[in-house]
Design a protein around this nucleic acid. Structure first.
Length: 748
DNA sequence: AATATCCGTATTTTT
DNA sequence: TACGGATATT
């Protein structure tokens, strides 16, 4: 391809980037180191293609999240000449799953699918497994059978890695190997029920897309829609996704993938770096471009991150460098404990803000969602606004599932998981009654093929009504109202909410907070043209941040970013604060089983550290006031993460307390703490009934006016479960504003 | 058969 | 700690 314009932005590219952007045709692998302008390069590539006359709808851009696609396309949009307004909006962009969802509805017929299929998310899939496990009588036996979540992940791993069940069990779930027969039985039934119910789970979306792509008739037709396929974050794709790409490539010569094997962090989802490493063999004639200049970070930070990844035994064949200047070295901040870690983070965050770095240009990163719990309380106390990405369990909350089940049953009357939940909403209806009712509605076995008589219509006609169950009638009316005249999704939620009000009041504590979550959902629904689009969207691109739910107004404000490392992928911030850099946190002690897992944790740390542009702080609390594993010790000393050994630490400045002084002879307060815990242990030894307190009082006192004071209610709000800082109603966990707006009140 | 209560255990990351 | 599973109670 020839560059057709000499737009100024072309000159912003370095020779390697330009090579990638201008690549003439055929497969291309771009190995893009952290911060090497990958997103920018992809955006330029898209813009360049459109400028050259490729119709935007003939470009397929596959990313790891919808957010990433949006980001890239909006950048491309700004590059494209103004004579083509909104051209980038017509690019096919999204995750593999979201694109599959779209394509499969177009090509449902040749695949033998119903175009109206609904999508089962991971926990729905697990619920279906559970339903089947009950039906097959595998639940109540002597030996314990794998839990539904385990079943779901065994299944998913088998499918995505393309490895036979036996192998998966042996490698990843050895403790379930004896149950292989039962598992096989469940999987068989699981598959046939999904088909009968017209539902697809995440894995099905990929499986059917692959089947479509490999189909001699429909495959080329589907692939023929596209002239270019671009894949971002290719290191985090799995075997199934590679197959899809390969099949597309039979028809589409122009396949470009971008990735970095040093940033592979999704092997738990069966992703494999082999996709990148073997790309040149699997796509013969592929060009390879390596982007090694880092535009993000200062050299001092790059020296540190290079040192971290250099210890990886795998070969990462890149040397990153920067011309942004030396900058200041990263800082390892040793803290006495978690509380001090919170103080240190807050202090440094505010310091940077004073120096002109707004909160939103700063991020606090951590390994798992709950690692930020204490910090969230402290931020709230100090009136520092924040938004949290990842770890949000909005979709997992029981009350949210309740409404979604209702919507799903309306959308797809054959959805067994949905019905099972819906039918247990009325008072007096439990699992047994629900199963009986489902049988009466024609669910569970082969659903009736007669389109005029769905389980929904049968239910609405009221063939069967257990007289003892009073609330079945309100349920029927609510569902009926939602089918009459096909009201918009938001109106349906409003109607369902009225039905759910007494149900929630009876079932949940903090029912009002949960009802307010439904109002949030109602607001969200208003942005979608149909119920089916809303459901697909929620399944494929669930709200990932507290702000996703709150809507646009918040975006004008300044707020600190809190994020899991996984959710931070692709992001960059002027100042990055990584907390809990202790062994057991990173690497997570759940991932220290085999060396592959540990290596992935190392890359995870690498990803976290490489998000920083100018300033990087790594915080390490010496002492944790919680029981590590059922031991009676009220605190224990942590080790610095094994990924920052002395050689690597040479690249860091040090701050905070002196670890030797803390753990050794110790200053008075450490001694006092140790003594206190010793006394507690002694006392508890005397009566031996009450275990010693789990926490010595280290958490910041919680102001009475902050909703987190009502602990139980905060938990019951469902959002950010168990998190005292959680505001009601799914709104961002936002502390009272600096300017004095009161926090949302939680009902008691 | 449903609901209340108690106990043990697993405990991450996301489409 | 919070959830699932098991047991006790209505």
């Amino acid at each position: 391809m020839r560059l057709t314009r000499t737009d100024p932005w072309l000159e912003t590219l370095n020779p390697k980037q330009r090579e990638a952007v201008a690549h003439a045709g055929g497969p291309l692998l771009v190995v893009a180191g952290a911060g090497s302008g990958k997103t920018w390069t992809l955006a330029c590539r898209v813009a360049q293609l459109i400028d050259r006359g490729v119709p935007p709808q003939r470009i397929l851009l596959l990313t790891f999240s919808r957010r990433a696609a949006r980001e890239m396309l909006s950048r491309a949009e700004r590059l494209i000449g103004s004579d083509r307004p909104a051209a980038a909006g017509r690019v096919w962009g999204g995750t593999f799953h979201a694109v599959a969802n779209r394509l499969l509805r177009l090509y449902a017929r040749p695949l033998g699918l119903s175009p109206d299929f609904t999508v089962l998310d991971q926990s729905d899939g697990a619920d279906l497994m559970n339903l089947i496990r009950g039906d097959l009588g595998l639940a109540a036996r002597e030996r314990r059978f794998p839990r539904k979540e385990t079943l779901a992940s065994i299944y998913s791993r088998t499918v995505n890695a393309g490895v036979p069940l036996e192998g998966v069990l042996r490698q990843a779930f050895p403790w379930c190997a004896e149950e292989a027969d039962g598992i096989r039985l469940i999987f068989r039934e699981y598959t046939s029920r999904k088909r009968a119910q017209r539902v697809l789970d995440y894995d099905d979306l990929l499986l059917f897309w692959r089947a479509l792509a490999e189909d001699p008739g429909a495959g080329p037709h589907m692939a023929g829609r596209f002239d270019h396929v671009l894949v971002d974050e290719y290191q985090d794709t799995n075997a199934l996704q590679a197959d899809i790409l390969l099949a597309l490539h039979r028809t589409v010569p122009n396949v470009m993938v971008v990735g970095d094997d040093a940033q592979a962090i999704y092997s738990f989802r069966s992703a494999t770096v082999r996709n990148i490493l073997e790309f040149p063999e699997r796509f013969p004639g592929a060009g390879v471009v390596k982007l090694e200049q880092n535009y993000r970070s200062t050299q001092a930070l790059i020296d540190a991150t290079n040192a971290v990844i250099a210890l990886s035994p795998q070969r990462h064949d890149k040397t990153l460098w920067s011309d942004r200047g030396t900058g200041s070295r990263p800082v390892l901040v040793t803290c006495r404990d978690e509380a001090e870690q919170c103080d240190e983070v807050c202090r440094r965050v505010l310091e940077h803000r004073e120096r002109g770095v707004p909160l939103r240009r700063q991020a606090v990163l951590f390994r798992t969602g709950h690692h930020s719990d204490l910090l969230e309380v402290e931020l709230a106390r100090r009136n520092i606004p924040f938004v949290k990405y990842g770890g949000l369990k909005f979709m997992e909350a029981a009350h949210v599932k309740d409404v979604l089940a209702l919507l799903r049953v309306l959308e797809n009357p054959f959805d067994e998981v949905g019905w099972f939940r819906v039918l247990q909403l009325p008072e007096g209806m439990g699992p047994v009654a629900a199963r009986r009712e489902m049988a009466a509605l024609g669910l569970g076995g082969d659903p009736s093929p007669d389109p005029g008589r769905t389980p929904l219509s049968r239910f609405l006609e009221g063939e069967y009504r257990p007289s003892a169950v009073r609330e079945i009638e309100p349920l029927r009316q609510a569902l009926a109202d939602c089918t009459r005249d096909d009201p918009p999704a938001a109106a349906q939620i409003e109607r369902l909410r009225r039905f759910l009000e007494p149900v929630f009041a009876r079932r949940y504590e903090g029912a009002n907070a949960r009802l307010r979550d439904l109002e949030q959902l109602e607001g969200l629904a208003g942005r979608f043209p149909s119920r089916s689009r809303l459901l697909a969207e929620l399944a494929l691109d669930p709200p990932t941040s507290t702000s996703d739910l709150a809507g646009p107004p918040l975006l004008d404000e300044d707020y600190l970013i809190l994020s899991t490392i996984h959710s931070a992928k692709g992001g960059e911030w002027d100042a990055v604060h990584l907390i809990h850099a202790a062994d057991g946190m990173i690497p997570s002690d759940m991932a220290t089983g085999n060396s592959d897992d540990v290596e992935e944790e190392r890359r995870l740390l690498y990803v976290a550290l490489t998000r920083a542009r100018d300033a990087l702080y790594v915080y390490f609390p010496l002492r944790y006031y919680r029981r590590p594993r059922g031991l009676d010790d009220a605190h224990h000393y942590a080790q610095l993460t094994r990924f920052l050994p002395p050689g690597v630490l040479d690249e860091f400045d040090r701050d905070g307390v002196d670890p030797a002084a803390e753990t050794g002879d110790g200053p008075p307060d450490a001694a006092a703490t140790a003594a206190a815990s010793g006394v507690d242990r002694f006392l508890s030894g005397l009566w031996d009934e009450e275990p010693p307190p789990r926490h010595l009082a280290v958490t910041a006192p919680r102001p009475a006016d902050w909703p987190g004071g009502a602990d139980r209610d905060a938990r019951a709000s469902g959002v950010g479960e168990g998190d005292p800082g959680a505001a009601a109603g799914g709104t961002p966990r936002r502390p009272p504003r600096v300017h004095g707006v009161a926090p949302p009140a939680l009902d008691r």
